[in-house]
Nucleic acid binder design. Structure first.
Length: 274
DNA sequence: TCCTATGTTGTATG
DNA sequence: ACATACAACATAGG
């Protein structure tokens, strides 16, 4: 389920483990979640290491651990992506992994668990003095100063013929935006999800930019804090309801597959513009 | 049985 | 080379 705010919520669930040693590392025998990484190296480096800090950027998370005394000096960098069904949990110290638990970090007081039934998620790992490229080269955060209206406009022009719904899902420019956030943003901006990305005038581009900011900021504040629901004034709470109506117009919401994903919009509010 | 699911990626096509 | 579209990945639940 995780997009920008949900990812940050899950990241913070592991906060009680920060500042504590990892005594044991358990890996699911089916290592699909670890594709592209050497699990033996990961287990060796993290065992005995002290979990120092974590960050999230878009849908990616990073956990940094300091190896035990006497071991190599390089930090251990653990990358986590939750895919479609991934979750992080905090469990008791003696926790035994279940069927869908792929990574379990045992500590003295807790176990840090990464569960993912569909295995669309991913774990990355590196041991190096500096953050590895897969972390350092991520696109700028949508709330950072590097994400400007100009940057938005350039990207929209390059993806000119694609529907905006599909474009907002592109992580290379909109890290953290997923299916529900894209629908929420377009609904607020009163833009039809099929509107070609290159067809927005400067005023509409600014509106889109503003709503990207609004949804990212408020989602982090509300959902990212404690998984609270956003207010009823958001599309979020209405979009999957049977016979759901637009909280602004009261008209019936519409659904269709756009950009390969089920999309919800309010036809009374979001009209295709020429 | 068939359809759906808050995501990415490899591949085909233009 | 670049942009776009879509099947594939894997599991559970309606």
């Amino acid at each position: 389920m995780p997009e920008l705010a949900e990812v940050d919520y899950f990241r913070k669930l592991w906060n009680p483990g920060l500042g504590h040693r990892i005594d044991k590392v358990l890996i699911h025998p089916r290592v699909r979640l670890f594709r592209g990484t050497k699990t033996t190296q990961l287990v060796r480096a993290l065992t005995g290491a002290m979990l120092e800090r974590s960050e999230s950027r878009g849908k990616q998370m990073l956990f940094v651990a300091k190896p035990q005394k006497g071991a190599v000096k390089d930090r251990a960098w653990l990358g986590v992506h939750l895919g479609m069904t991934g979750e992080l949990r905090l469990e008791p110290a003696d926790y035994e992994p279940n069927r869908h638990d792929h990574l379990v970090l045992h500590q003295a007081k807790h176990s840090l668990v990464f569960e993912d039934p569909r295995i669309f998620g991913r774990v990355l790992f590196a041991q190096s003095p500096q953050a590895p490229d897969w972390w350092a080269k991520l696109p700028p955060d949508l709330l950072s100063s590097a994400f400007t209206v100009e940057a938005l406009n350039i990207f929209l022009k390059r993806r000119a013929r694609a529907p905006l719904k599909a474009v907002l899902l592109m992580q290379e420019r909109f890290p953290g935006i997923g299916n529900w956030m894209a629908d929420e943003i377009l609904w607020r901006a009163a833009i039809h999800p099929r509107q070609p990305a290159g067809s927005l005038n400067p005023a509409k581009t600014k509106v889109l930019y503003r709503e990207i900011h609004f949804v990212c900021r408020e989602a982090l504040r509300i959902i990212g804090k404690d998984w609270s629901d956003p207010p009823k004034s958001w599309l979020f709470l209405h979009r999957w309801k049977k016979g759901g109506t637009c909280p602004r117009t009261g008209a019936k919401l519409q659904h269709a597959t756009i950009g390969g994903r089920t999309t919800c919009w309010s036809p009374a509010r979001q009209k295709l513009a020429k």
